[in-house]
Amino acid sequence: METKEKFLSFNLGVMDTAVISLQHIIEVLQVPLPEICGVPQMHSSILGIYNWRGEMLWLVDLQAMLGYPPISQESNLVSRMMAIVLENKGKYLGLLVRQLLDIEWLDTKQMKSATTELFYPKISPFLQGYFINDSEEMIFNLDAITIIQAPIWDIHN
């Protein structure tokens, strides 16, 4: 049985690498920061709304959501961010990340279970598990559906 899946890998924070399964990713696009429309009184990790294909796409600072320093506070902030657009049952969400790395084939049989002791409390609920790469580094496997269904979005969905 084939257990390899395609994942999109990207940086989280300064040192960490995360992946999300391609099956929930609709599109990856560059978002010019001035085109993000801020929304007052929102959860701190929600950066605002972006006009995507004529639809309102909520954009989230994935690092802030997962307990890392917010992207928006980084000194080397670029004028365009990469957004990973996730979809589940007609709900869309844009995750802003600093840098995309690659498309990787990973064997889901080699995924290890995420124990809460190993990870920040904020990231644990969104982890499906983790992989260890050839350089012995941990790669977090984020669960797209859990991210889309996170309770912090209930305010506007």
Rank of each mutant, 00 (worst) to 15 (best):
T146K: 15
G48N: 08
S21F: 13
I49F: 07
A64F: 10
V39L: 12
L96T: 05
P70S: 05
E27L: 02
I132Y: 11
P34G: 00
G13I: 00
I36R: 01
K112L: 12
L100F: 04
L57F: 05
N133I: 07
L29D: 03
V19L: 07
G48L: 10
M42Q: 14
F10H: 00
S72L: 15
N157D: 12
I103M: 06
D61W: 09
I148Y: 09
H43T: 13
Q149Y: 10
M111K: 15
V60N: 07
G90A: 00
V97G: 00
N76G: 07
V85M: 03
D102I: 02
M65N: 13
L22R: 11
V31T: 01
A18G: 02
Q110P: 01
K89H: 09
I152M: 12
I147Q: 03
D154G: 10
I155P: 13
S75I: 10
Y50L: 11
L96F: 03
K89I: 02
F131Y: 14
E55W: 08
D134F: 07
S75T: 13
I147L: 15
P40A: 06
P69A: 08
S44F: 06
R80I: 05
G13T: 01
A144H: 07
V31C: 02
F7H: 02
I145W: 11
G90N: 07
M1K: 08
V60L: 15
P32C: 01
L106E: 05
L96E: 00
G67K: 08
L66C: 14
V28M: 04
Q63E: 14
L106G: 02
A83Q: 01
I84S: 01
S135H: 15
E27R: 02
E117Y: 10
P125F: 06
K91Q: 08
W105I: 10
V14M: 06
L95C: 07
I26M: 09
I46V: 12
A144M: 08
Q99D: 08
S79W: 12
E104L: 13
Q149L: 10
K6S: 08
L62Q: 09
E136A: 09
P70V: 05
P151R: 14
P151W: 11
L59Q: 05
L101Y: 04
V19M: 01
L118I: 09
T146H: 12
Y50A: 03
L106R: 15
L33T: 06
Y92T: 03
Y130Q: 04
E74H: 11
E87L: 04
W105H: 13
E87K: 04
L118P: 08
T115F: 09
N88L: 08
C37A: 14
V60R: 09
P151K: 14
L22F: 03
G94F: 01
I71T: 14
V31I: 09
S44A: 12
